[in-house]
Design a protein around this nucleic acid. Structure first.
Lengths: 335, 335
DNA sequence: TTGAAAGCGCTAACAA
DNA sequence: TTGTTAGCGCTTTCAA
């Protein structure tokens, strides 16, 4: 039982395939009765146009398909972003191919290759580390590209990020303002752009207060909940342990929460909000990003490129919110 | 600057397009030096095969694209499911089109139509209410369909769900076992299958204990966090207010948490776990589903159908876990 | 207003 | 081992 083609519909309606094409595409210039006859045949046979064949012929219209490449779709942050992109695409009659990279350049290239092989009109990418110069060829072929969350190395395209460095500086300054001088930094892979930015913000804040960096208080490469938890346990065994923590993403914040209150509570400010963060005791003080705005902005940029905008690449920086709720307002014993 | 085609590569390598096709497809029977020449031309031109054109010609191979249609991709539950489906697809060299329905049959049909127009090999669907008989035509045309989370009305296909009714009964029985007799039910739209099942489980538990249902304690149609919060506020004004709550999904649990401890704490068991549920005070007692297993199972079923399995539709019921953590173990004043 | 011919990029089937 | 021909389902172009 094969699916019917335009030829089948044409035969059933006693017209040529070309006429069916016009009716299905909603073009003017078909006699009303002819259109009605075709419409009936379409319904009778359950005909649906093959849009892949269509876009093969119509090179100017594209495939009405875009690709979204994120770090990890299961991360609520990227899930919200994806939903936002999907909504923008849906509004414009596009569909979305989605793929996760796990921050692995290898998998990113596979995913992007699979998407471009299907002739996507554009890509929204959360770039992994590693050069993205290979995308220049795709772009020369007409594929539009927008980066979100992080810039891509070696590729000048529209990019949407947040004010990572300034926000991190503000968060750490907040802790300094509450009397803390021994503030630990717990971060993910340093080669991830957002992490490097946030670490730089941490250093900015210390420097502004004339506090030298203590390498013993800095932990990078924390890739999981347990690793973050264990890193905190180690920090607590130091001769001069930290009295406050700055955690540079949601996963690390989650891990750190396990050991936060025992034996003694530590002050904590995290980057990224958590769903129930306000209901914890104490409620979490965080730097909050808006993934919906990130995704929506990226999608809007992409669609204006797809619509033909060829102006110079733009860089959009969205602002974070600093949300004071309690966990960052513990004073030190000394303070 | 158009993207190169096989013809361009053929010209550059001094062979016919057919030879290029064979080399790119990795077929045997091409002389090594010829293959090398073609390979060089491919790299020089940055050639990438147009897989849409390919699958137009090769009807037996399909498009290596599947569609995933969920309620709301931004919901962490479905995001985890989506990631799980994506991983299974990636392993098999497929890509995933993803769309959200918002539980609107209209949007669901649009999304599904957009996917089938692009000749997806199969669909994994979280069905909205409303008949899905319209999918029979797609299936006759060769599109495989698997349902997940809920069954589709009017369509006999592989379906993966959890033991909603039994799990809800167990949860409510747990509250009864702690002395509660006035247990409120707070649920989402009753026409959503999972909600009806969970409500049935609630009634089962009451009936098993010989407790008559009190309609004043039952609230359906709670579609958002604020609605759930307000519903609880109303319940607290009853002459005989509930001493315990059963909330039938994560969104409702979140809303109810706002008013749970004031003025007096109520016992609470929720359906669906929340990311930080174990760190609340008191920690949440919940029925926990495994979205990764749901998605993975659905994907496996779908890919075996795509591979040619034509056996009778299967119905797979995965088990939930009941996680006792504190919020459901308050005793009543009376108990 | 309708249709015939050609071709998008690729590959099945055949021939050389 | 390589190439030729035809055609997947559709639309552009042109003619009727």
């Amino acid at each position: 039982m094969k699916r019917p083609t335009m030829k089948d519909v044409a035969r059933a309606a006693g017209v040529s395939p070309m006429t069916v094409s016009r009716v299905v595409a909603g073009e003017a210039g078909v006699a009303p009765e002819t259109a009605a006859r075709v419409g009936q045949a379409v319904r009778k046979l359950g005909y649906q146009r093959n849009d892949n064949a269509r876009s093969l012929r119509q090179k100017n219209l594209g495939t009405s398909t875009i690709g979204l490449v994120v770090d990890d779709l299961a991360n609520p942050f990227y899930a919200l972003m994806a939903r936002s992109v999907e909504d923008e695409a849906h509004r414009r009659g596009h569909v979305v191919l989605v793929g996760s990279t796990n921050d692995e350049p290898q998998r990113e290239r596979e995913v992007i290759a699979a998407f471009t092989a299907r002739q996507v009109d554009g890509l929204i990418i959360v770039p992994t580390i590693g050069s993205h110069a290979f995308l220049k060829r795709q772009m020369a072929g007409g594929t539009q590209v927008v980066c979100v969350d992080r810039p891509a190395r070696g590729l000048a395209v529209d990019t949407v990020t947040v004010d990572n460095r300034a926000a991190a500086m503000r968060a750490v300054t907040h802790l300094l303002g509450h009397g803390h001088t021994r503030i630990a930094y717990l971060g993910d892979r340093f080669d991830i752009w957002t992490q490097a930015e946030r670490y730089a913000g941490y250093l900015d804040a210390l420097a502004a207060h004339g506090i030298p960096e203590d390498p013993a208080l800095v932990r990078h490469e924390l890739r999981s909940h347990p690793q973050a938890r264990d890193a905190l346990a180690v920090l607590r065994t130091l001769p001069e342990p930290p009295t406050a923590l700055f955690t540079s993403n949601d996963l690390i914040t989650l891990g750190v929460l396990d050991g936060l209150d025992h034996p003694a509570p530590l002050a904590l400010v995290g980057f990224d909000d958590l769903p129930l963060g306000e209901r914890l005791t104490p409620p979490l003080t965080v730097v909050s990003q808006d993934p919906v705005a990130l995704g929506g902005t990226a999608a809007n940029l992409l669609f204006s490129r797809i619509a033909g905008d060829r102006s110079a690449p733009r860089s959009v920086v969205l602002l974070t919110r600093f949300v004071v709720r309690g966990s960052g307002e513990f004073r030190t014993a000394a303070g």
